[in-house]
Simulated assay, not measured.
Amino acid sequence: MSDFPWVRFFPSDWLAGTRGMSAVETGVYITLVATMYERGEPIPEDQARLARLCGASNSAFKKALDTLIEEGKITRVNGGLWNDRVEKEKVYLSEKSEVARRAGKMSAEKRKQNQEAEATPVQRPFNGRSTKPEARSQKPEATLSSVAAPPAAQADFDQLQSKLTEAVDGKIQPHGSFVVGPIAELMANGVSLELDVIPV
């Protein structure tokens, strides 16, 4: 299975980046990039095979490839043909996966601690009443995502939104804002905003 079962695709970036290209150049470009994502590594420069893959004649493929290399869309590397955006996405997905792995590990540890705490027997004095200050019927503690944020928490959410927006130079797609609740919960579980979230 591919290392890239999905990738971020921004239509406005794609249209801007391919404006002025011929239909053949655009078709060759997207097919080569998709193949790089599928392989997760540079593709060997076997022009006859790649021309067939792109559905182009050898001469049309060679002309399109020369243009793409000249414009910096495709680069020649030791392993064959490569694309800088594919490399960036590879790093992005790797970092995102690492953050999710850490968050999952911390969540599992917290669940285990909660289960151990709940499994601890209740100490009962001679009169048979529980010495635990809380009763079992109490509602569980609310999480950041389960309640409306009070004014102070809303200010924290606004500050978090501002930091995240600043980290991506204001280029947020597609909605122009972040859903900060899940990020705030990760931070509450020990994930570092500066070390784990913002670099991704």
Rank of each mutant, 00 (worst) to 15 (best):
D3A: 12
R8C: 07
F9M: 09
F10T: 12
F10I: 13
P11S: 12
S12L: 09
S12D: 11
S12H: 12
D13V: 14
L15Q: 11
L15T: 08
G17T: 08
G20K: 03
S22A: 01
E25Q: 06
T26I: 06
G27T: 02
G27C: 01
Y29M: 02
Y29E: 01
I30M: 05
V33K: 01
T35V: 05
Y37V: 02
Y37D: 02
R39T: 07
P42C: 06
P42K: 03
P42L: 05
I43V: 14
P44S: 08
E45L: 07
R49I: 03
R49M: 07
L53A: 08
C54K: 02
G55F: 07
S57G: 11
N58I: 11
N58S: 15
F61I: 05
K62A: 11
K63L: 04
L65C: 03
L68A: 03
E70S: 13
E70V: 10
E71G: 07
E71A: 11
E71D: 13
I74Q: 00
R76C: 06
R76G: 01
R76N: 06
N78Y: 08
L81G: 00
W82M: 06
N83E: 11
D84M: 12
V86R: 04
K88C: 11
K88E: 14
K90E: 10
K90W: 14
K90L: 09
V91S: 10
V91L: 14
V91C: 10
Y92C: 03
S94N: 11
S94V: 08
K96A: 15
A103W: 04
E109W: 07
K110G: 08
K110W: 13
Q113A: 15
N114S: 13
Q115A: 15
E116H: 09
E116C: 09
A119L: 07
V122T: 15
Q123P: 10
P125G: 13
P125F: 15
P125Q: 15
R129V: 13
R129H: 15
S130W: 10
K132Y: 15
P133Y: 11
P133I: 13
P133F: 13
E134H: 12
A135V: 10
A135I: 12
R136K: 12
R136V: 14
R136I: 09
K139W: 05
E141H: 07
T143V: 07
V147K: 08
A148G: 03
P150R: 05
P150G: 04
P150M: 04
A152E: 06
A152F: 02
A153W: 08
Q154T: 04
Q154D: 01
D156E: 07
L160K: 00
Q161E: 06
L164S: 01
T165H: 03
K171L: 09
I172E: 02
Q173I: 11
H175Y: 15
H175I: 14
H175R: 15
G176K: 10
G176H: 08
S177D: 12
S177K: 13
S177H: 14
V179C: 10
G181A: 10
G181L: 09
I183W: 03
I183N: 00
A184R: 02
A184W: 00
L186R: 03
M187I: 14
M187W: 04
A188H: 11
N189V: 07
V191R: 00
S192H: 06
S192N: 09
L193S: 04
L193K: 01
D196G: 06
V197P: 00
V197L: 01
I198W: 00
P199L: 02
P199M: 02
